[in-house]
Simulated assay, not measured.
Amino acid sequence: MTRPTADTPAVHILHENEEWIPPLAAALDAAGVAHREWPLTGGSIDLSAEPPHGVFWSRLSASSHTRGHEHAKEQARAVLRWLESWGRRVVNGSRAVELEVSKAAQYTALRAAGFEVPHTVVVFGTGDLKARARELPLPFITKHNQGGKGLGVRRFDTLAEFDAYVDGPEFEHPVDGITLLQEYVVTAAPFVTRAEFVGGRFVYAVEVDTSAGSFELCPAEACAVPEPGAVAEPAGLFRERVEVSAEHPLVVALEAFLAEQGVEVAGVEFFETADGRTLPYDINTNTNYSPDVEAVTSRSAAAALARFLGAELAAVSAVAA
C-alpha cells in the first residue's frame, strides 16, 4: 500500500468489507496513488471539524447488513454529508448512496429517464403482499429492496405457494421492510450483461453466462435461483461483449443517466428479453472488478479507476498547494 502521512492528501476508500479491498489497493499502488481506508463500521466524527484533505471514494454496499454492519448505510450518509458540506471531492457521494441501497430508487430514476425497467410492485411490510401478488402474471419473483447477493430472490409459480411462503417460517424479512414483487422475465439467450463505468465513462461490457443458474441477482428465466447447496463453476462464466461499445445507444443513454444521478463509478446490469426489450435492472455503485472478469477483457476497469482517482487527487492537491 502507498502509505501517506497523516497530513498528506490521499484517496480515502470508504467501505465496510475488507475482502473487497486488495485488488483495488493493488491497482492504486501500481499507479502510485496514495490511499487510506475509512471503515464504515463505527467510530465518530466532529461535524464542526474540518475533514482531512484528499479524494473520498464511497464503496458502501447494499448488502453491508449481511456482514454484521447493519448501520453502515446510516454511517455513510452522515459521513458523506459532512464531507460534502466542507467541499471535499467525493466520488459516488450522498446521491449515489441512495441509489445503491434502494432498488425502488433505481427503478423510479431509470423510468423517469426514459428507460424501460422490469414491472415492479413495492410492498411496505407484509400486509399487502398477497393482494398485490394477485395483480402480477404467474410466475413472478420476489426480491429485497436493499439487496445484493440475491437477497430475497425467489420464483413463485402459484399463488398458493406464495401465500404459504408469506405466512411461513422461511419468509425472508428485508432489512428495510420493503419487498419487491417483480415480473419474471424470459431472456432471449442465457446471459446477462454488465457494463462498467469509471469517471462516468464506459470502460467495457461483460457477458455473464446464466445457463447454470449462477447469476442469482437477475430476475429472469435464464437467471434461475440455484438450488440449495448448488455451487456454480466460475470458469467460463464471463466474456467481453466487444459489440457493446461506447457508441452503443444504451451505453450513451446510461452515461447521461449516471451523470445526472451523480454516479461516477458503476456497474449497470441489463438483459435483452425474448420479447425484444432491453431492461436495465441493477445499478451497482460499489464495483469490485473481480480477477475472473478482468481476465477476459481487453481493458482493465481497475486500472482505469486508479488513473481516474489519481487524476482527481492530483487536481485536489494542486489546488491545496
Results as ranks from 00 to 15, higher is better:
Pro4Val: 13
Thr5Pro: 13
Asp7Cys: 14
Thr8Gly: 10
Ala10His: 05
Ala10Ser: 12
Ile13Lys: 10
Asn17Val: 13
Glu19Thr: 08
Pro23Asn: 08
Ala31Lys: 01
Gly32Gln: 04
Gly42Ile: 04
Gly42His: 10
Gly42Pro: 09
Gly43Gln: 15
Ile45Phe: 10
Asp46Pro: 07
Asp46Met: 03
Glu50Pro: 00
Arg59Ser: 10
His69Ser: 14
Lys73His: 15
Glu74Met: 07
Glu74Asn: 13
Ala76Val: 09
Ala78Asn: 12
Val79Leu: 06
Val79Ile: 04
Trp82Phe: 06
Trp82Pro: 01
Glu98Trp: 11
Leu99Tyr: 05
Ala105Tyr: 08
Ala105Glu: 12
Gln106Met: 14
Ala109Glu: 01
Gly114Arg: 01
Val123Thr: 05
Val123Asn: 05
Arg134Ser: 05
Phe140Val: 07
Ile141Pro: 06
Asn145Arg: 08
Gly150Leu: 10
Arg154Tyr: 14
Asp157Tyr: 02
Glu161Met: 02
Glu161Ala: 14
Ala164Cys: 10
Glu170Arg: 14
Phe171Trp: 00
Pro174Arg: 01
Asp176Leu: 07
Thr179Cys: 03
Val185Asp: 06
Val185His: 01
Thr187Ala: 15
Thr187Met: 10
Thr187Cys: 09
Ala188Phe: 04
Ala188Tyr: 09
Thr193Leu: 14
Val198Thr: 01
Thr210Cys: 11
Ala212Ser: 13
Ala212Gly: 12
Gly213Cys: 03
Gly213Ala: 12
Ser214Asn: 02
Leu217Phe: 13
Ala222Trp: 05
Ala224Pro: 00
Ala230Gln: 13
Val231Asn: 13
Arg239Leu: 12
Val244Asn: 00
Leu250Val: 00
Val252Ile: 12
Val268Tyr: 00
Glu269Pro: 01
Arg277Tyr: 06
Thr278Pro: 01
Thr278Gln: 11
Pro280Met: 06
Tyr281Ser: 02
Asp282Ser: 08
Asn288Tyr: 09
Ser290Ile: 07
Val293Leu: 05
Glu294Cys: 11
Ala295Trp: 03
Ala301Gln: 09
Leu305Ser: 00
Leu309Cys: 09
Ala311Tyr: 08
Glu312Pro: 01
Ala320Gly: 07
Ala320Phe: 04
